[in-house]
Design a protein around this nucleic acid. Structure first.
Lengths: 180, 180
DNA sequence: GCCGCTTGGAACCGATCAGTACCGTTTGCG
DNA sequence: CGCAAACGGTACTGATCGGTTCCAAGCGGC
């Protein structure tokens, strides 16, 4: 075997944590699902929390890279982020934003989980701000934060209603914020 | 004793669940904090889930009544809901929207918890829609759903940043949606 | 004063939790 | 070939989980 127990653990945990929630997934289940020995788990991670943080950091990098790649392949419109979001939230296994979910589950606002989730959102705002700036809008970042607010509102709407209409509404509102 | 174990359980659970999350609060802790006998708990509720649902339903009624009361005492502007929200989210113990949090924790989209949380949001949208209609806007409910999207986005922003600026931004965006 | 209902307290249940220790095996490298 | 590191599997820890059961005390109404 020996083929990267760490990577397998992170990949399996990423899926299980997202599908069922972090607290709801026990170490034993995670170990069974990943085919990794129990001892190997604790050789790679000091605790479940450490794994959670590693999963979130990994997901952060993947999500940001995917967003940048998708935006690079689009027409450059600042509204493109809503199309990326729509496709992401249209997946069959959609269960909300993993970072929002993690932030909600980790009640402690000073926790590392909170910090990582917040950092992810700030990084995403930064990407949006760059797109806006390239389109000739003010570099204040205010519009980008408004876009993020619309995205976060849309993700809750999609989770609640089970369809992508909230993303479409958010995009239209964003469009209205643009030409003004 | 004998003074309504049920009410005490719901009140205690409402506080503990909100502060620390539903899954994070065990039955034993809840019983200790409320001063209720363990047996009394299970006389009033079939399971922890039943208590969770009762708490959410109770909170739903309280929140909706408080919103209606606050709106009745305001100037009748459709934007009044954002002021209500701002005051609510400015509380020191703020930890997001209890219904969103419950929906996130209960991963199962078909669960009763999901149903209750969704019903709460729909009822709130209905209240907003009525305010909008009274102000002469279209009764389609589309604007009300947009307002709810802005509110949900704002609550995540407040949770993330720790200040009320997102609510102010949401209100300004809503204002822009109004005169158009 | 007595009866019936609700109460709080405690003991107990099997299951599961996160985390530790030790095992024999497999793997990559010199 | 041989060694060392990484591995998977199992057994175990104490703590806590949600839930059940029994009991004695307190209360209200008749």
């Amino acid at each position: 075997m020996a083929t990267q127990a760490r990577e397998r653990l992170i990949a399996t945990a990423e899926t299980l944590f997202y599908q069922r929630g972090i607290q709801a997934v026990g170490i034993s289940e995670l170990i069974d699902a990943s085919g990794v020995g129990r001892a190997s788990f604790y050789r790679h991670f000091d605790s479940k929390d450490a794994l959670v943080h590693a999963v979130l950091r990994h997901r952060n990098e993947r999500a940001l890279a995917a967003l940048e790649a998708a935006l690079a392949g689009s027409d450059g419109s600042p509204l493109g982020v809503f199309d990326v979001v729509a496709e992401r939230y249209g997946q069959a296994d959609f269960r909300g934003c993993a970072f929002i979910n993690a932030m909600v589950e980790a009640a402690d606002r000073g926790s590392e989980t909170h910090r990582i989730a917040r950092a992810h959102k700030l990084a995403q705002i930064e990407i949006i701000a760059r797109q806006l700036e390239q389109a000739g809008h003010s570099p204040s970042g205010e519009l980008a934060r408004d876009f993020q607010l619309l995205i976060d509102g849309a993700v809750m709407g999609v989770l609640r209603e089970g369809n992508l209409e909230p993303v479409e509404r958010a995009k239209q509102i964003a469009a209205r914020l643009l030409h003004l």
